[in-house]
Design a binder for these strands. Structure first.
Lengths: 212, 212
DNA sequence: TGTACATCAGTGAACGCGCGTTCACTGATGTAC
DNA sequence: TGTACATCAGTGAACGCGCGTTCACTGATGTAC
């Protein structure tokens, strides 16, 4: 962060509106995460400066840096779940739905790379309760893939009758694509949606019942 | 690292054997990387303590922390390249070779998770020249997949005639599997080689010429 | 209508820590005369 | 064979930095009497 001047002060919230700062802190944390430096740029001091308050004020609303980050993760998991779930809305063909989920998954990661990094690529810091994160990512990322896989398996689209195994393969491919797009952006991936489709097409065709 | 006692002193190298310390530093860095904490545990001070020398001694052999880490990365890229290349040795069937590369790739990542993290999952620190890293990972990870894909394409195994596109799909799946195994070890991946085979089988079948 | 008081929403200064890095030095060892 | 000297392989102490967190405080605002 280096030699940062105090920066402008926000005006103090009025009585009864103390929770406003809480929201501003969460928002500033997201903004800092997105901006260049990634998770490394997110420090209590940097957040305070971005919000326009002092570091101790943050402890008025969060017990810990860990708790603050956990809150941010939780909201990002929810955003991602909302987007992937919206992607399948109204799509009846299970095979099409599967592709839609995959595309939405990769899009979320590509559009929010730093958030995706934190959620799926970094070791969770020891102080964040692992249980919570596990529950959360059971819900997100994988969950939508799993439920759509279930539809496909039920429709007899795949040779396997195990939706979990199917979803694992799909997860590997969409996560692989997403994280490579993030860490190796200089790579010749051509157009993003095209790359996603090529991968998903191949995998889905490969998973199909060999009858066709 | 917390409150670490000075630790045992190594005996000073004899005249003309000054480079011994250099090797010991590199080795200790790898060991620290593997041990619990990952890249986060690798500090100049921790390395010095592990080696049994003082921090300034490290600057006798490396100009920078960045240069030291770059050296370690380089050697890890080489180890990985050696292992994936050894995996295809003597395999004539290109399809079998492809699976062998994939399995070797994932095995390397699973056996050296912290090293794999640094090489393929973390943002390279700004001070490390990105060019060098780009060259390196063009050589590693992807390169072996690409050359094997070339063999498969040449043998007419796949519908696509673009080995790069084929290798991208394969990279996505092996990297995805590897990195998920690392970040989400609690996941029901069943047996590792089995999961790899299931993924690779699906992808390869999907990429095949639709004739068969 | 005026005033004492509690509460709310913060601030300022400091704590101890670990980090990468620098600087002046030291002591053993080989070499030249 | 003895000694001055250069070199090698390091060490000890300190630098400034940013970090998370704590503690005692302050000033505005609403409320009770």
């Amino acid at each position: 962060m280096s030699r940062t001047a105090p920066g402008p002060r926000r005006e103090r919230a009025r009585r009864g509106e103390g929770d406003r700062l809480r929201a501003e802190i969460l928002e500033a944390t997201q903004t800092l995460l997105e901006s260049g430096g990634g998770a490394h740029a997110v420090s209590i001091r940097a957040i305070a400066q971005a919000v326009g308050c002092t570091p101790p004020s943050i402890y008025l609303h969060f017990t810990d840096k860990a708790q603050l980050l956990l809150e941010v993760c939780r909201s990002n998991f929810e955003r991602m779940a909302a987007e992937t779930s919206r992607a399948v809305d109204g799509i009846e063909d299970p095979a099409e739905a599967l592709k839609a989920v995959g595309r939405a998954y990769v899009r979320f990661g590509a559009e929010h790379p730093e958030q995706y990094r934190v959620l799926f690529m970094e070791r969770p810091p020891e102080d964040i309760v692992p249980m919570v994160l596990t529950q959360l990512d059971d819900v997100t990322g994988f969950a939508q893939l799993l439920s759509t896989s279930r539809r496909c398996v039920a429709a007899g689209l795949f040779a396997s009758d195990d939706p979990v195994a199917v979803a694992c393969v799909l997860w590997a491919v969409v996560h692989g694509l997403t994280s490579l797009l993030i860490t190796k952006p200089s790579f010749p991936w051509t157009e993003r949606d095209e790359a996603v489709d090529r991968c998903l097409d191949a995998v889905c065709r490969g998973l199909r019942t060999p009858v066709a």
